[in-house]
Design a protein around this nucleic acid. Structure first.
Lengths: 240, 240
DNA sequence: ACACAAGCTGCGGGTTTACGCAAGACGGCG
DNA sequence: CGCCGTCTTGCGTAAACCCGCAGCTTGTGT
């Protein structure tokens, strides 16, 4: 068995290396990549079937890398090992995982034991292992309880990118009014009106901008989600 | 000599611990804190004069912690050790460093040698050590070349928070028109008009929202800056 | 088949933004 | 002192945004 480690922090990389050696005696080779780009290349060259991947890397983040890897070989098993459980990450990951693929999501704050267990479960037993904390988010996120519909999330991203209502309408194939309709739902759910009208009509917010901020503060959005969305936007703009 | 380490990642913490031991034989005690809150408390209890501090910690980030520590004892020497050189961080740090204080800013990607050298320079020689990459930003940021004025940065934060023009005017003591004036300058500098009018008048952006996004993508803003700004905003709202 | 909820859409309006134009205010500088 | 650049402010306008109201299309359940 061969394992590929994709992680930009040298300390974490060598820690992972040791953990893999300890948890998987049947693994005879471990290779390392220090960013997503190199990770993709090595995965292709070695036809890696077992990958441990950091999200949030400078050069090319884990979600992007995982997407192209899975596109080439959907049966690849990937364990995401991340510092954060932002809803933006969780959503990003579950959006790209192929049907029936074995994968995992473990936080860096987890114990040695948990990490090693996850390594065996995923790589040997082909099970999915999702950190408890992450799991909670996932349920809320995909179910509708207090969570966001895909369409709401979509429009959130669109205004975060700075598109006008009209542009969003064109991009998503909707009428202007529908876009504004969805926006209203979004404002509701994000509770953007909060301290707006409490005193007088004084400290009112710009709803559109405020919504984006609140989403950021709630980890619904984060830098890497923005980055991806921006890339998709440019793509869409180019193809006219 | 005593050194306090404030860093939330256990791996990085023990790495720092070793580095301090190796670089500073005259240091007889090293204490550790795993977040900003604990860091502040330990600094107070031990009257720490030498601190190595991570920015970006979950509980209370390095800038906040450093601010209160410096408020209590301005002669404290602090070495910031961070993964990123976002302009938002650099600006945040230089805003709170007291006059004549010795401090440093070293990236985690720096070599062992550089870290150890910095430790000695700051803690023993009371010099300021700023990573080259960071230094570049600082110059641009504080000088005006291609950088942002304080007033421009200020208004950027305000719209990022989601305030209306009117609210900003009230908060900053300006007229409505002046606020809009500053906004225009900001839009210019952020080059928000970019692909707006190239094809036709099609894919136009919502300037206000777009400005925030671009600032994020350029690392002019980041999560922790937003967080701080939000806290200040709430404070201002409370005191009426 | 009928009722009901959820989402899309057009209409109309009140409010907020973006910004050109132009008149002061302030601070160097020869 | 007068000239000039930067910053502030008021006025006015066109565009964008927020949203209540109401008619339509769906899908779902009993």
């Amino acid at each position: 068995m061969k394992v590929l480690i994709v992680e930009d922090d040298p300390l974490h990389r060598s820690y992972l290396h040791e953990a893999v050696n300890a948890a998987l005696p049947e693994c005879e080779t471990v290779i390392e990549a220090e960013n997503g780009t190199v990770g993709e290349k090595l995965a292709r060259d070695h036809k890696s079937a077992h990958i441990v991947m950091d999200l949030q890397m400078a050069n090319r983040n884990g979600i992007e890398a995982a997407r192209t890897i899975w596109k080439e070989r959907p049966e690849t098993r990937i364990l995401f090992w991340s510092n954060y459980s932002d809803e933006a990450y969780v959503r990003g990951v579950s959006r790209i995982v192929p049907d029936g693929a074995a994968y995992g999501y473990v936080l860096k704050s987890a114990s040695d034991e948990r990490l090693k267990l996850a390594l065996r479960s995923i790589f040997i037993e082909s099970q999915c292992v999702i950190d408890r904390e992450v799991r909670g988010l996932q349920q809320k996120s995909l179910g509708q309880t207090n969570g966001f519909t895909d369409s709401e999330y979509e429009i959130l991203v669109d205004i975060a990118l700075g598109l006008t209502d009209r542009a969003i309408a064109r991009r998503r194939g909707l009428s202007l009014r529908s876009v504004q309709n969805r926006l209203q739902h979004l404002y509701d759910k994000l509770d953007v009106y909060q301290s707006a009208g409490d005193d007088h009509e004084d400290g009112r917010f710009n709803l559109r901008a405020r919504a984006v901020t609140v989403a950021f503060l709630r980890k619904l959005l984060n830098y890497s989600a923005l980055e991806r969305a921006e890339a998709e936007l440019q793509e869409w703009l180019d193809e006219k």
